[in-house]
Design a protein around this nucleic acid. Sequence first.
DNA 1: ATCAAGATTACCT
DNA 2: GGTAATCTTGATA
Length: 203
Amino acid sequence: MNLNLNNKLPREFYVRDTLTVARELLGKIFVRILDGKILAGRIIETEAYIAGEDESAHSSRGKTKRNATMFEEGGLLYVYFTYGMYYCSNVVTNEKGKGDAVLLRSIEPLEGIEIFAQNRFGKTEITGKEKRNLLSGPGKICMAYKLTKAEDGTDLLGDEIFILDASTVPENKMVQTTRIGISKSKELPWRFYEKDNPYVSRK
DNA sequence: ATCAAGATTACCT
DNA sequence: GGTAATCTTGATA
């Protein structure tokens, strides 16, 4: 896998309309340099959470200690803890003070697969089925990339965690549908994924 | 101080 | 398809 680590998405990519960013993040490469090793995968499923109109966004009732990162400038990583055992990662979008973010729901593993496997299953040799299960969910992504509360607020324009530009998924290969695992604002069609990609978290 | 819900996952039938 | 696991957070008193 030959990745150009200098090809980071610029600040302007993130500081835009949240639904546009959620769409355009599909196909981009999410990277973490951990202990000198490269962990990388292709983002293939996202969900938008937008303050104000969206009852299920953490930011919908204003700023709190937990969601403070959502109100920062676009291009930061928002990580939160849920269900007593899992973390979920989001990309903050739009201008400072807005409270918008895009949840990373599924990633197709590209590089550092043995490390992902170690972090997820405690072993480095995995089957094809296990490979499809590596990063196919927001909690799984955090386990595999070792993202926790400590990474909340990390700037994606820094040199530890960042997203590389790559070709955008075309409209005819993109599916837009309702979001998963929420109880409020269920009707909003703010989930996006790449059609026919075997790593999608759920149909 | 108390309490219910939660942007999930793994494992069971 | 169903549900247990596990605990922080935000809302209410």
